[in-house]
C-alpha cells in the first residue's frame, strides 16, 4: 500500500474517498433518518440524463450532472411535498426517464466517449486534482449548512409536525436537503458510480444509527465508517486488481451483514444476562 502512495492517482483516490465520506456521512444520515433513500436512488440514476446532456452540448459532464440532478431533486421535493401517496411512483418514473434520456442523448452525440462506464461504476482512480477542489467545496457547503441549521434539521427529522408547529421552515429545509443531496450524489458517482450510490449513502448511517446517542454522533460515525470502507475497498481493489467502486461497496456490505450478526448475538446474550440465574 505504501508504494502505491507514490502514484498521484492513488493519493488523489484516497483523498477523494475521504472528501466523499465527509459529505456522504452527513447527508446519508439525514437521508436514512428521513426515510428518503428511494429519492437518493432516483436522483443518482436521473443524474445520467445530465451526463448525456453534457456530452450532447459538449460541456463538462460534472457540471451537466450537477445541474440536472439539482433540477430533478427540486422536482422530487415538490412532488413529495404535494402528494406523498403518489410520490414513489413519480420518483420511479423520473429515475428511469433520466437514465433513458442520458442513453439517447449519448447515442445522438458525435464522438462517442469510452469512459461512460466510469459514470455507472465510478472512477476513483482517475480523479483529477480539480475534482478534489470541487469535492472540498461540496463538503464545505454541507458542513456549514448542516451546522447552521442543525437544530431545525434535527426537529424536522425526528418529528416533522412538531417542527412545523414550532415554526421551523420544514419545506424550505426539505428543498435545501434534497439540493445538497444532488451535489453529494454527483460527487459519490465519481467514487462508486451512480448504480452504487445508494449503498455508500445508506450503509454507513444504517450501521451508525444503532451505535449512536445523537444525530450528530450518527453523522460523525457515518463519516468514519464511510472513510474506512473507502480506504479498505480501495486497498483491496489495488491488491487484487478489482473494480474499485464495486470493491468499496462489497466491503460496506460485509460490515453491514457483520453488524446485523453482532446485533443478533448481542441482543441474545443481553436477554440471557437479564434472566434470573
Amino acid at each position: 500500500m505504501i508504494e502505491a502512495l507514490h502514484f498521484e492517482f492513488m493519493r488523489n483516490a484516497l483523498l477523494a474517498g475521504l472528501l466523499t465520506s465527509i459529505a456522504c456521512g452527513i447527508i446519508g444520515t439525514l437521508v436514512v433518518v428521513n426515510r428518503i433513500v428511494f429519492i437518493s436512488g432516483g436522483i443518482a440514476h436521473a443524474a445520467y440524463g445530465g451526463v448525456g446532456l453534457a456530452f450532447f452540448l459538449g460541456i463538462s459532464p460534472i457540471i451537466g450532472a450537477a445541474g440536472f440532478s439539482l433540477l430533478i431533486s427540486a422536482i422530487m421535493a415538490l412532488v413529495t411535498l404535494k402528494n406523498k401517496q403518489r410520490a414513489d411512483t413519480i420518483i420511479g418514473v423520473l429515475w428511469a426517464v433520466g437514465m433513458a434520456l442520458g442513453i439517447i442523448l449519448i447515442d445522438l452525440s458525435s464522438g462517442y466517449n469510452v469512459d461512460l462506464m466510469s459514470y455507472l461504476f465510478g472512477s476513483i482512480l482517475a480523479v483529477p486534482t480539480s475534482d478534489l477542489l470541487l469535492m472540498g467545496a461540496v463538503d464545505l457547503i454541507v458542513l456549514v449548512v448542516v451546522a447552521m441549521f442543525y437544530n431545525s434539521f434535527l426537529a424536522m427529522s425526528f418529528d416533522e409536525e412538531f417542527a412545523l408547529a414550532a415554526g421551523v421552515p420544514v419545506k424550505t429545509l426539505y428543498f435545501v436537503l434534497l439540493g445538497m443531496m444532488a451535489f453529494v450524489v454527483v460527487m459519490v458517482i465519481r467514487v462508486v458510480g451512480l448504480i452504487l450510490v445508494i449503498a455508500l449513502l445508506t450503509i454507513p448511517p444504517y450501521i451508525a444509527e444503532r451505535y449512536s446517542q445523537s444525530l450528530r454522533g450518527m453523522m460523525v460515525l457515518s463519516v468514519v465508517l464511510s472513510a474506512i470502507f473507502s480506504f479498505l475497498g480501495l486497498w483491496l481493489s489495488y491488491f487484487f486488481n478489482l473494480t474499485s467502486g464495486a470493491t468499496i461497496i462489497m466491503v460496506a456490505a460485509f460490515f453491514f451483514f457483520a453488524s446485523l450478526v453482532v446485533d443478533r448475538v448481542r441482543s441474545r446474550s443481553g436477554r440471557d444476562s437479564t434472566a434470573p440465574a
Binding site: 437544530n151 427529522s157 412538531f162
Partner: peptide, 12 residues
C-alpha cells in the same frame, strides 16, 4: 430508532 436523548427532545 431515532438517535436522540430525552434531554435533546426536551430542548426542542
Amino acid at each position: 430508532d431515532f438517535p436522540i436523548s430525552v434531554m435533546d427532545v426536551a430542548l426542542m
